[in-house]
Simulated scan of single mutants.
Amino acid sequence: MMSQQEMSDRWEIQDLVFHYADLIDSKNFDGLREVFTGDAHVDYSAFGGSVGDLEETIAYLKQAVADEVFPNSQHLNANVQVALDGDRASGRVMCFNPMEMALPDGGTQVFLLGLWYVDEYRRTPAGWRIARREEEKSWVFNTPDFMQL
């Protein structure tokens, strides 16, 4: 049977995962400082994105996911799996990610990504934070012809 602390930790980590998705979809990239540790490592290379620390990641997202490139997106998270180990935890989170992309001809195209986040979490004085996040590619559907995913 789970202890109250374990249940609380799991819920806080799950809420952290969902808060990340909301920040990304609302393009509040500076808010990512609320969900990652200051020394976080973020690896978006599975889909051709950046690999680096938190500040490099925020700068990358501000450019790569700007409104004029991706007007709309949804990061729908499910199957949040968490393994707790004291003040550290690891996790694997499923993400279904529809993206609307602006096309060179002025139109838009919606494509879909299926991925997993492979995470490491750390309890900090401010609560649980993501210390490491790596995307793991599962599948892609309907990507624009000029994209190489």
Rank of each mutant, 00 (worst) to 15 (best):
L76S: 10
N72A: 13
N77I: 04
L84M: 11
A126T: 13
Y44R: 08
R88E: 02
V140P: 02
F70P: 05
D85Y: 05
A21R: 01
Q14V: 01
N97R: 05
F96C: 11
Y44K: 13
A40M: 09
S45K: 11
K62S: 03
V51I: 15
N72H: 05
V51N: 02
S8C: 11
A126K: 13
L112I: 12
G127P: 07
R33F: 04
V140A: 13
V65A: 03
G91D: 05
D67L: 12
K62P: 01
L54W: 00
H75P: 04
W128Y: 04
V42I: 15
G48D: 06
D39S: 11
V118R: 12
A46F: 08
T108Q: 05
H19I: 15
N77V: 08
E34Q: 15
Y60H: 15
M99E: 04
D9P: 09
W11Q: 15
L149A: 08
Q148F: 04
L113Y: 01
M147D: 04
D119Y: 03
A131F: 01
A59Q: 11
Q81R: 15
A78N: 12
N97D: 06
D105G: 11
P104V: 15
F141P: 03
E34P: 00
R132W: 04
G127S: 08
F96I: 15
A59S: 14
N79E: 06
Q148H: 02
L76P: 00
N97L: 11
D9M: 13
F47Q: 04
L113C: 05
L149N: 06
E135M: 10
V42S: 00
A131G: 02
N79W: 02
S45Y: 00
Y44Q: 12
M1H: 06
R132M: 07
D145F: 03
R92Q: 14
T108L: 11
R122T: 07
E55K: 07
F36H: 14
V42Y: 01
P125W: 00
V35S: 09
Q74N: 05
G127T: 09
R132H: 09
V80F: 02
A46G: 03
A89M: 05
A59V: 13
L76W: 03
V69Q: 07
V69H: 08
G48K: 10
S90G: 06
G114C: 10
D87Q: 12
